[in-house]
Computed example of a mutant assay.
Amino acid sequence: MGRGRVQLKRIENKISRQVTFSKRRTGLLKKAHEISVLCDADVALIVFSTKGKLFEYSTHSSMDAILERYERYSYAEKLLTAPEAETHGNWTLESSKLRTKIEVLEKNIRHYVGEDLEPLNLRELQSIEQQLDSALKRVRTKKNQVMHVSISELHKKERVLQEQNNALSKKLKENEKSNEQLNAGFPLSHRQVAPPPPPPPPTQTPHLVPLAIGSNRPFYGGSVIRQDDSARAHTISAGMMPPWLLRHINE
């Protein structure tokens, strides 16, 4: 004979009930994980024990996101099925939920900035500290990434400027070398040479040179005296000559 259907009912034995709860809870969490992986589904599982202890499971998305999605869908279904008389009450309930959520968020913000910490117990303070530590680690990680990116960009700019400087230096040297070769191909007369200084002016006082004997072309100051000035030069120098020389010149 096959086994009959077992009737489900509360286990009266406390120990057996606790053992069954532990086994079935583990199996339930395992099945939730399997269906989320095999079917790519968003699964959220919440279990409270008889003592009020919480056991939960959610997929890669957070539990809050799944619950918010559930509330949106359930509220949309209620709007479609509920009469108009209940619509106003639903909106009132939704607004009260939103106000409560805003108050909780504002309270958390005050706690994060170090305000209104007196009513918190040790466990709540430790939770806030862990959240701040994790947020600080994320901020530091992001800051280090931004710093590394900025430093790499500065290094790139430095390399570009160095390459431009080297190119300009090379071009300047090439220009100097080409100028030297161009000047070397021209003769000295075509080069840019400074003109020599002008000669000093001649002295204004001429000197007398004795007349050459037997010559009718007297000299004055190193130059030939003209014919019209020969008589005057002969008269000037006659008084300075001896008589025998004058007789010889007149003959």
Rank of each mutant, 00 (worst) to 15 (best):
E34W: 09
S169E: 15
P83A: 07
I236W: 09
I35R: 09
V43F: 03
H60F: 08
K156F: 04
F219V: 03
L211E: 00
L172N: 15
A82E: 07
S152K: 10
G27M: 01
L188E: 12
I151R: 15
E12K: 12
K101A: 13
V6H: 11
L122Y: 07
S36R: 08
V146W: 00
D42R: 06
D116C: 00
H88C: 09
Q204N: 13
N183D: 12
F48K: 00
R5K: 13
I151M: 14
I109G: 01
Q145E: 11
Q164A: 10
E124K: 08
L172F: 09
I225K: 04
P200M: 09
K30S: 07
Y57W: 10
S215V: 01
E106V: 03
S22G: 10
T205S: 03
N183A: 10
Q227G: 02
E68Y: 05
L136N: 14
K143D: 09
L211I: 06
S169Q: 13
L132I: 05
Q145R: 13
K51T: 12
P197Q: 05
A231P: 04
K137F: 09
G27F: 03
L161N: 01
N144I: 04
P198C: 00
Y112M: 14
L168K: 04
E94A: 15
Q164D: 06
V139C: 06
H88M: 14
F219I: 07
R25S: 02
P198T: 02
F21T: 02
V139G: 04
Q131E: 13
N166A: 14
M1Y: 03
R217W: 03
L38W: 05
P201C: 03
E34H: 02
S189I: 07
F48H: 03
H234T: 06
L93V: 01
K171W: 05
A212M: 08
E176Q: 14
V139L: 15
E158H: 10
Q7H: 11
L245D: 10
Q162A: 15
L8M: 10
I46V: 14
T59E: 03
H248E: 11
I15E: 15
K9Q: 13
H88T: 11
I15Q: 15
R110E: 08
A65G: 01
L168P: 00
K170Y: 11
P243G: 08
L117P: 07
P197T: 11
A233I: 09
S150H: 04
T20V: 11
I213C: 03
K31A: 12
V47E: 04
H207L: 14
E103D: 10
E153W: 01
G52K: 02
H60A: 08
R217N: 04
Q192D: 11
Q181Y: 01
L182T: 04
L136T: 14
V146I: 11
Q181W: 09
S189L: 06
E251Y: 04
E124I: 06
G214V: 00
K101M: 05
R17E: 01
H148T: 12
H190Q: 12
R138D: 11
V104E: 15
N216D: 14
T20H: 12
V47T: 00
Y73H: 10
P202Y: 06
A238W: 09
L172G: 07
E56C: 08
P83K: 02
L105H: 06
S178A: 14
P187F: 06
R191D: 00
K97V: 10
K143Y: 12
D64K: 12
H155R: 11
S134A: 13
L54H: 02
H155Q: 14
